[in-house]
Amino acid sequence: MTNGSDVRRYPGFGLFSLLFFVYLYLPISVVVFYSFNANRIVSNWGGFSLHWYTAALSNSALVSAVKVSLIVAVIATTISTIVALMAALVIVRGRDVRFRGLSETVVNLPLLLPEIVVAVATLILFSQIGLANGIVKLIIAHTTFCIPFAFLPIRARLQGMDADLEEAARDLYASAWIAFRRVTLPLILPGVLSGAMLAFVISMDDFITSNLLNSGGATTLPVYVFSLIKQGVSPQLNAISTLIMLASIALATVAFLLQRQR
């Protein structure tokens, strides 16, 4: 191979990387593979079947967990994206902002503290103020940890945008709102959308906080999946897992493509 003469290449790294990608994707492929197993016992292959998918889709506990997760994720994503957008506009574009560095740390605070500690602390707070509504508790907690995930792509997009465009709009007598609505927002929209999508995926996927705050009627999808895992490996669990993976891969791909857009 001509590659052999390239001093930058190291023999074996290619094979190693190939094995690495196998390692990365083999475990989740195993789940997908066994979800089509007709046999009730997971690791004994009993022929191809879609039975577990129909069983999963008619499982009412699963459907209600998906509903709870969707309600929480949609509301938490909406609030956190708006809040993150406002913060990003000031942190990147604002003039004479005091405590800019501090504000950035505050936005990213949920990434710096261990989630289990924050979850436990939130649990105590809610029990102290007597907040009982499970869904409301989840929405509040999810909104908090979604903010940095919504913030980072928005900030990146804002930093990549030419501030002169806004200035030009303002010079042409656009009000601050019109300049934002007609110039800034359309330009940073891919960042806002990918931030919202990341926030949504993070919320849908959260286990630690949702499990600790879990109370009657507020069981999210990952918490429900956890309870199934506790009951043991089953083909229906594999089917549910596969459906979850499909959804998150689709979302992550759209977010990835949005971020690449220039």
Partner: peptide, 15 residues
Amino acid sequence: PFWVSMIVRVYSWII
């Protein structure tokens, strides 16, 4: 994989 459900990825190792 990082965006694929954490719980599913951990569960896959049980199988």
